[in-house]
Structure formats: C-alpha cells, structure tokens
Write a protein that binds this DNA or RNA. Sequence first.
DNA 1: CTGAAAGCGCTAACAC
DNA 2: GTGTTAGCGCTTTCAG
Lengths: 375, 375
Amino acid sequence: MAKVKIIDVARAAGVSLGTVSNALNHPEKVRPETRRLIEETIRELGYTPNQSARMLAGGHNNMIGLVLPQLNHGFCLQIISGAQNEAQKHGYSLIFAVSGRDEDLEEQLLRHFMGTQLAGMLFQPIPRPAWTPRPNPTVPIVYLDAEGPDEGAFVTADNEAQGRLIAEHAASCGARRVAVIGCAHEGVLSRRVTGIRESLSTHPDIELEVLDAGEWDVSGDGFGLGQQLSRRDGAERPDFIIALSDVLATGAIAGIRAAGLSVPEDIRVAGCDGNPLAWSGAVSLTTCAPAGYEMGRKGVQLLVEMIEAEQEPQASHVRLGNRVQSPRTEDHPARRIETVRPFLLERASTRGAAATTSSAHRSPQVPETNLGAYL
Amino acid sequence: MAKVKIIDVARAAGVSLGTVSNALNHPEKVRPETRRLIEETIRELGYTPNQSARMLAGGHNNMIGLVLPQLNHGFCLQIISGAQNEAQKHGYSLIFAVSGRDEDLEEQLLRHFMGTQLAGMLFQPIPRPAWTPRPNPTVPIVYLDAEGPDEGAFVTADNEAQGRLIAEHAASCGARRVAVIGCAHEGVLSRRVTGIRESLSTHPDIELEVLDAGEWDVSGDGFGLGQQLSRRDGAERPDFIIALSDVLATGAIAGIRAAGLSVPEDIRVAGCDGNPLAWSGAVSLTTCAPAGYEMGRKGVQLLVEMIEAEQEPQASHVRLGNRVQSPRTEDHPARRIETVRPFLLERASTRGAAATTSSAHRSPQVPETNLGAYL
DNA sequence: CTGAAAGCGCTAACAC
DNA sequence: GTGTTAGCGCTTTCAG
C-alpha cells in the first residue's frame, strides 16, 4: 500500500539513491551488474517512478500531447494515427484528449498538458471565428488545421487544392453548369472557392455560379438550396453542385431528391471536406478529404524539430559557461506553416457514364469500402 | 520566455505566495476582492501552474487516464465517448492513449499515467492469452473488456449474450443452415460460439456448422470463407453466416458476391461485435454491438467509486487522530465485475421478407443512418 | 485572512 | 563508477 520510492529500491538493492536514479536515466553510467540488480529489485518491489517528481527535478519526458475538438468528426482519427506512428518513429509516445467542442474543457486540458511538462503538444483548436494561438506556451506547440497571424507552427489543409480537385473532377464528369453552395466569403471556405474558380477558369465551356449561402454545418440549408436549384428551368439548372462542406452536400442531395430529381443522374453533387459523419446519406458522397494522416505526421515532425531545437541551445548554455548567447531567434522562426494536400474520394453522388474516365483520379490507398483501412 | 511561477504572480499582485496558492485551490479562503486581483494577474502574466509540482506537493487532480489497445476497432470510440461523458458528469476529465497492440508501449503508458498521479485509470489491455491485472497499482484501476482471477475491478462484455442474440436473430429470420466463421476456439470468440450453440439448441430444426477458421481482424479471411461457402452445393450451402467479428463478416459478404451470389437474398450474413469501422461495405451489416458506451460509462462509475472510497479513509485518518483504523478491507472488495449487455443492430445484410417480424429487436436509440449520433 | 517554512520524490550536479 | 546534496514549484501546515 505504502508507495515504494526510489530510496526503498536503493536500500533493498544495497546501493545509493543516486545510483538507482542513474540506472534509470543514464544506464551507461552504471555497471551492468549493478544495473541488473537494480532492475530486478525494481520489479520485485513494483516500483513506479513518480513522474511528477521526475519532471519537477528537471527530468525529461517523451510524451507528446494531442488535443482534438472531437473524435467523431472530420479526419481526427487519421490525425491520431499519423501522429502516433510518427511519434513512435522518433521515440515519443502520444497521449491525447478530446475537448468535445467545450472551450472551458479545452483550456483545462491545455493547461494540464502544459503543466504536466510533456515534451510538446499538438493542438487542433475548436473552430471559432477569431482564434489566435496561445501567447506564451510553456512547451512547444504545433497547431493543426488552424492558422494564426502571429508566430507559431501550423499544419493546415490546402483548401485551395481541395477546391481545385473537386472542380477538376466536375470537369472530368462532363459538367456544363456548376453551382457552388455555402458561405463562399467565409475564411477557409473562400479558399475552396478560389481553388474552384482557378480550376474552372481553364474550362471556359463550363458555367460557374457561386451561391454565397448556407451554413457549412447545417444540412437543412443544403436541403433548401438543393431543392431550389432543382426547381429551376432546364437551361438554368446546374448539372453539378459543389457544396463547400460535406454536411451541406448531404442536405443538398436530400433536397434534390425531395424535388423529384435524382443524384447523380440529374444533378451530380460533391462535398469538399472529407467529413465521414456526413457520409451516411442515401447516396454515398463524392468528396475531397484532407489527408488527416499526413497532418498528424507532419505535425509531429514539426514538433520534434522544435523540441530538439529547444534542447540544443540549453545544452550549449551549460557547456559554454559564461559565453552564453541565445541563438533562439534563428532556431525559432516566427512562423512556420506546413500544408497538407487533399485527395479525391469519388463515390456514387458523382458517378455516371461520363465519370468512368476520371476513375484514375481515385486514390488507390483509400478503399471506400473500408473506412477502417484508412484510419 | 522565462517561465512565470507562483511567486511571480504573488509579487505582481502584491500578496504572498500562500495566498495565490489558496486562491487557486481553496478560493473560499480568500477575500473575493483579492481573489479577483490574483486571477487578473494570472491572466496578464499567462501563468500556468506546474502540475508536476502541484501533484508532488500533494495536490489533487481530476484527470482520469484511459489506455486502449487501438482506436480503429471494436467499440473503442464508444467506450471513449461513454467514459468522457460520465467523467465530465463527475467533474473529471479524460486523457487517453493508444497502445497500438504494442505491449512495451502499453507498459510505458501505464507507468506514465500512474506516475503522473492522475486520479484513476481505465485500462483495456491488449488481448493476450494469459493476462493478469497489475499487482500493485499506485492509483485505482478499472479494467475494460478484460477479466482477471484476482482482485480488481472489471467491466466486461457479455459475449455469450452476443452470440445468443445473433443466433436468435438467425432463427427468427428463418435460417435453416447456419455457418459460424472465425477462430471459434479463441478466448472471447469462443464465448460467442457458446452463446450461439446454446441458443440454437432450442431450435433443433436448424443445422449449425462451426468453421473454426479465419482471423477476426483479417477481412481477407472472411472473403475466402464466404467464397468457399458460396460454392457449395445447394443442400450444403448455408443460408445464414454468423461471422465472429464484423470485419470477417464484411469480408464474407464481399466473398459471397464475388462468387456470384447475393446478400441477403441467397445468404444472410451477420457480424458479432458491433465494429463501426467494418460497416462501410456494399451491404450494411447486421451485427450485435456490445454497448461500448455503457462500458465506458460503467467503467468511470466504478472508478469514481473507488477514487472516492480511497479518499474517505484518508480523511478520517486525519480527523480521528490516533484512533486510526483501516476499514479498507470493507471498502475495497477484492473483486468487482460489471457486465455490459449487447444489443442487436439489424440491417440490410439479414433483411428479408421473413425478417420483418424481428424488427422489434432493433434498438431504437441507435439510428443506423447516422453513425455520428452514437459515437 | 496572510506570510513563513517544511517537505513531496526525484534528477543532476558535485565530490569521493 | 558511487554516494551526497541542493533544489525543481507547489501545497499545506502553523503562527501571526
């Protein structure tokens, strides 16, 4: 019951406290024989080092913390898996927490992780209008799927590329009139629109119409817009709808069907953000997913760089004695951004005779039949 | 850059260190006015309490740790969500880690969590032949989906009930020849088989055949078995396949279709473990989910009881002075087990004319069209 | 209510 | 190589 501590191990093994500590943290400094004895004793006594004390005393830690807004949305699971694998490759382990879109919880988790002195943190903030990175992090932080004006390290989805990819898919499906629905003026979404415009500008034969309406997370808005577009006269009616979010797309499909048309026969529909939770509609949805796995992976890479950059200068402080100078400004560029490229998930909502030509676009490593394989 | 600590806050606010500490941990002991001043100062300075120091000094912690073997399988996600919600209800937050079926990592994570002094832990061990709970945990632990002979607290799935439920469903679908695929001799899976046998023994008119083959997590194995069974002669061919895992079931469906038969028309197929990640196949899968959500929820309930039981006696030690006695043996029954009942998810892979009668079995709280709702 | 002082268990110097 | 010692930042006594 009484917790066994390092001194107990030392006494039981007949060595001194410092030796046990060394055996744990600098095994090379201890005679193999002694080390084995100590290890044996540790096992017998069931000793578990107190991490708090360890960190407090200046020890190091191979833990990377990851805070996500949710687990059941977007590419969270892929992020985790990418981060986990990359972390392991560098000798770190991952622990994580979900803020559940609760800003207080998010704050609390962040403070806990930072206070708990892990090596670094990956943090995907809850989407909010005016988000900014933390001013003075006590550990290196990499922000995922977010972007700040100030200094910091960010890994973001390439939203323009998402738009381009979907637009090109529309073109290759033989679309003549493309309608874009969703708040086209809003931050991230507007980049998707830019990508769409850019891509379709090389197809002068395709008419593009941008309806700047519909909240990205309200499928009812998509329903209304889908219905509305379906009721237009033949020549005015789009044959391809790009929704700026998958939720909107799912709504639009329902709206089109409610109006008596069918998808993809009358109108093709595509989403734009690879949100698995919007995929359960009647028609499986073509969309364009940011590579969550890549995001996690790159996040950890960035983070590890930062962690190691932070350790270097400290070491030199000690060694150089009084000739201390801080090269921090060079190690720590004010702002680092990594972009992650998306890939196309072609499914029934845009499939048709004309679509077969584009099947080469489909990403081979993402079998649509098994979401599990791509987590 | 230099980390701001409690003494900095105290000086900036013009109070003493102890007062800041009190404002943080026992707000009621500090004059509201002073408290506000301190809070303000904390915000300005961006002070983050050092959790390590805090814990070391005997502080408490509202964190519950959860270690899972994987994230992309079984009911992990539901466990998390159940645990998260229940934890929040009791004022705890959840942090978790995935061992990735790597026993060393699992051990490391456990040690970290225990060493980090969180309030308690939920732990779903990597399935292994002869698993036993940790001998001397330094924090309360509840084991999930595992069971030990010795003392400890466990929440387990009722695997026999899962088997029974699926078998009964098969019977109510009018099955005549039922084939079971999967490693029927393996631990947990064998219980499912027991349940199936038990249930079908009351239906002497139904033939049961158990093919003890196919890894539970290899959909290719299911494919092969599905194909193989499809090629049998009419009388030998089963009309209902129960796969001991959903992944296997999904593979089997693909195999059956590859062999030119259709599901559910020619052969009905059901899974057995409610694995959402196996549900994206061409035909939606009937399965029997252990209530992962319940498991997470009950786990946290148990854990919270244990945490609080552990705090009580300590408090009385202090108050009773020398009349110390340890009622631990009564608070801490050697072994506690909670069982979680499964429910049937009836979907297209077993649906047919005859199946409508059983639709009452379908769990109303789990809409099949929106996986998100039940994560 | 406030301030001073005693550790919590450990690591990383430092002498031996 | 080994043993000794000074804190790490905080909470919690205990006197004012």
